[in-house]
Nucleic acid binder design. Structure first.
Length: 597
DNA sequence: GCCGTTTTCGGCCCGACTGTTTTCAGTCG
């Protein structure tokens, strides 16, 4: 998935001229290829050709070197890039345009690509809507659906109209926000640029980025002790599309791809106060200012002052501000006004879990199903990341698209995993499975198969439209299976695309706690499931939590950091997270072994 | 369109679910 909006809003380089390659970033190239894939799909082209463009797009989005700087021969070596696509990429890099992409956009207005991203609307529907009713935009579609005109099209009915209106409403609710990790990567690039410009200054991300929220509206950046020229460096940054405001202490820009970024400049002596102020959250800050007032103090972005004399009490660093307010330092992830001020007052803040606390990863895929790397590569990557154990948990047979394993293949795969594990030093491989929970709550694989594995992660991958009561029963039945150790991505949410499933979560958590089943925080950047609030709820219900990568490639183990952020926002300590333990005590904490004990 | 060859063309993940049918098309994962 690419972090950019759809449509023709990409202009790779507005002043495109030959040789002007700097602005053609990998993600922009990847997006052009992905759009070609979408447009070809609407044209009902050869599905393998469509996939070829999408594969090429994925490759480029994940390539760490800058494609624009590679030679044509080097580009050809990238997986999924052949002569044809390599040539088109070269054209794009050299001229800022790709004729093939432009031709396709002549045939379909770019706004139809927005339709394609609605839930339940695919390429056939988009083509039909465009050809039959000249529907080009989301607005056209909404008007037609509201007027009941869509049902006139063969194959569409009143129910489909309702679904489309619902999808439109969801999309509206989500626009303007992005996944936090994407925002973080973009902000990190801006910060790096500014640091280069002002090496002596203190430049950092603030706002929701620093608090670790799972989505981000705009990028807030703070510069303390930087020269005034940092504002020019910011507004002239290569990925700036439009300057919205340019002042001495505050500037705002729109970046290519849609992010708004704000830069604030404060004197160095105000660093702490400004960090505190711009990190928020708003409700946390209000409570903090209230506390200051009660102590005859006032707090703003420049410092903490005595209300009567304006004498400065604190402001150079954040710790000093909290200290002057008789509070323990509150980690940014907790600043949501969810009890952190009372806890800081009582010196009872938790010691939050950190990435370095994790000793194992309990959810990973391989080429046996839909992963990109083999068992050994996954294991080596986990080991290189500093972990001591990894569970290989490929899909079960219901997930046919992912080439899910049936009982025989699952056991054969487990043998292969154990064989690789036996060869590794100071590292444990667990042979597990991510077993589908069928619509009726039954496990996708037979009990005697699950019993022979080291770890069973049970997950929902279909039947998301069930009623809450039915869904709850389904989950409770899954928890009854004695071989289920972990409930994987429990709520099924896809951030910015699919809301968490509506089930009786307190009941599910309580049942899991009683049965000894762990709840997963899935670290995939568009899942982060459980979310912070539910993870805290689950812990409070007595359930153990695991933080897992759900990695589908060797490098993807790195996403664990985002799962840890969620855990921190959930107030979790290392003791709450089962995979902070060494492999022996981890095993001992698993349901299957607790049962035996 | 890419890949990997039995080196010049055939293979490339496919089953479940839903809303629309009246035996299926489209979407999703």
């Amino acid at each position: 998935m690419l972090p950019f909006e759809t449509g023709s809003r990409i202009r790779l380089n507005p002043d495109a001229s030959i040789g002007c390659v700097e602005a053609v970033e990998n993600l922009a190239i990847a997006r052009v290829l992905a759009e070609i894939g979408d447009l070809l799909e609407i044209k009902a082209e050869n599905p393998f050709k469509i996939r070829a463009y999408r594969n090429a797009s994925e490759t480029i989005a994940h390539e760490t070197r800058r494609i624009a700087e590679l030679t044509p021969a080097e580009r050809l070596e990238l997986p999924g890039i052949g002569k044809d696509i390599a040539g088109k990429i070269g054209e794009l890099v050299d001229t800022g345009e790709m004729a093939y992409h432009k031709d396709l956009l002549q045939q379909f207005p770019p706004t139809v690509l927005d339709l394609l991203h609605l839930q339940g609307v695919g390429p056939k529907t988009v083509a039909l809507l465009y050809r039959e009713m000249d529907i080009r935009t989301l607005q056209d579609l909404e008007d037609a659906a509201k007027a009941g005109r869509l049902r006139a099209i063969k194959g569409m009915g009143a129910k489909k109209e309702v679904l489309i209106l619902k999808a439109l409403e969801e999309q509206r609710r989500f626009t303007g926000r992005r996944l936090m990790p994407e925002a973080y990567e973009t902000a990190a690039a801006v910060v790096a640029e500014l640091r280069e410009h002002a090496p002596g200054a203190d430049i950092s991300m603030v706002g929701s980025l620093r608090r670790g929220c799972d989505t981000c509206g705009d990028l807030d950046i703070l510069a303390a002790g930087a020269p005034a020229s940092v504002m020019d460096a910011f507004t002239r940054y290569k990925l700036v599309d439009r300057v919205l405001a340019h002042g001495d202490t505050k500037s705002s820009v729109r970046l290519w791809g849609g992010f708004q970024a704000d830069l604030r400049l404060v004197p160095r002596e105000s660093l702490g106060a400004a960090l505190q102020y711009f990190t928020g959250s708003k409700t946390h800050n209000i409570a903090l200012r209230d506390r200051a007032m009660q102590r005859g103090l006032k707090l703003n972005e420049y410092g903490l002052y005595r209300a009567d004399t304006d004498e400065k009490v604190a402001g150079e660093n954040e710790e000093g501000i909290y200290d002057a307010l008789d509070l323990a330092y509150v980690p940014p992830e907790l600043r949501e006004h969810r009890g952190e001020i009372a806890a800081a007052d009582a010196r009872a803040l938790p010691r939050l879990v950190q990435l370095a606390d994790l000793q194992g990863d309990l959810h990973a895929h391989t080429t046996a199903t839909d992963g990109r790397a083999d068992i050994e590569s996954m294991a080596r990557a986990a080991q290189a990341a500093g972990l001591r154990y990894l569970a290989i948990t490929d899909h079960s047979k219901s997930l046919a698209m992912a080439n899910g394993l049936d009982e025989a293949r699952a056991l054969e795969h487990a043998r292969a995993v154990r064989e690789v594990g036996a060869r590794m030093e100071d590292f444990n491989l667990l042979a597990g499975i991510e077993c589908d929970i069928r619509p009726d709550g039954a496990m996708d694989l037979a009990d005697d198969c699950l019993a022979q594995l080291d770890l069973v992660v049970a997950s929902l991958h279909s039947g998301f439209n069930q009623e809450p009561a039915q869904l709850t029963d389904r989950l409770l039945r899954a928890l009854e299976c004695p071989w289920v150790d972990v409930l994987g991505h429990p709520t099924g949410r896809i951030i910015l695309r699919r809301e968490p499933l509506q089930a009786d979560w307190p009941r599910v958590f309580a049942t899991a706690a009683a049965a000894g089943v762990c709840l997963e925080i899935n670290s995939q950047v568009d899942r982060l499931d459980l979310d912070d609030l539910r993870a805290r709820q689950a812990r409070d219900a007595g359930a153990k939590i695991v933080i897992s990568s759900d990695a589908h490639s060797a490098g993807a183990v790195a996403v664990l950091r985002w799962g840890v952020v969620v855990a921190r926002r959930a107030w979790l300590t290392p003791a709450d997270v089962l995979n902070t333990r060494d492999v022996e005590s981890f095993h001992a904490g698993l349901r299957r072994h607790r049962r035996a004990a």
